[in-house]
Amino acid sequence: MVYRQIPLNLQLRAEATFDNFVSAGNESLLHTLCNSDERYIYLWGGDACGKTHLLQALCHQASQLNKTAAYIPLCDDDISEPDILTGLETLDLVCIDDLHIIAAQPQWEIALFNLFNRVREKGGRLFITARVAPNKTQIQLADLVSRLNWGVVFQIINLPEQDKIEVLQLRATQLGLELTNEVAEYLLKRSPRDMANLFSLLGKLDTASLTEQRRLTIPFVRQYL
């Protein structure tokens, strides 16, 4: 019988920060997020283009500056009621992820509209992401749509292939893994190429590499694709 070592559940956390966001094509956006004092910014882009990463990075940055923050992922099953938005205006920063999910749900739309007004009144900061531009969200409440358009709206540009390799390598380094160009290119050719899938795959490879005490080589990763 062959015994495999089970790794301790103490893996390095790959935290989303501005430092590990590869900004190719999104330099202006990143500069504005990091440096400007805009009170409201709306970010949109397709799946796995980095929306969640940027919001998490904003929350992380806020905590480092001793500011209060909340991250509200609307796609999360735990976030089931608009009441989650109550009282958030008392925080310094509110980040709403995946706004399009609640489009055409009147109670959510009103709750978000009220939050928008309250945050503005209190002078807090609000960052919203969605898969589509503000005018395309299918939000029915015109008052909310016009507010969504009020601030700086940025489209997050998807990373070109070469930059995806760079991002994967950066993430691998954070996890304590060595990912060569050759292996990274191999992964990109043979698995779904959105960053969420690639990150999840890298997580699996990290566990496997610890369990089997192997480095990431093409023959090794081939087994897991």
Partner: peptide
């Protein structure tokens, strides 16, 4: 997870 922390713990004052 970073998400759990940002959603439930960071908003606490």
């Amino acid at each position: 997870s970073q998400q759990q922390f940002s959603t439930w713990i960071r908003p606490l004052q």
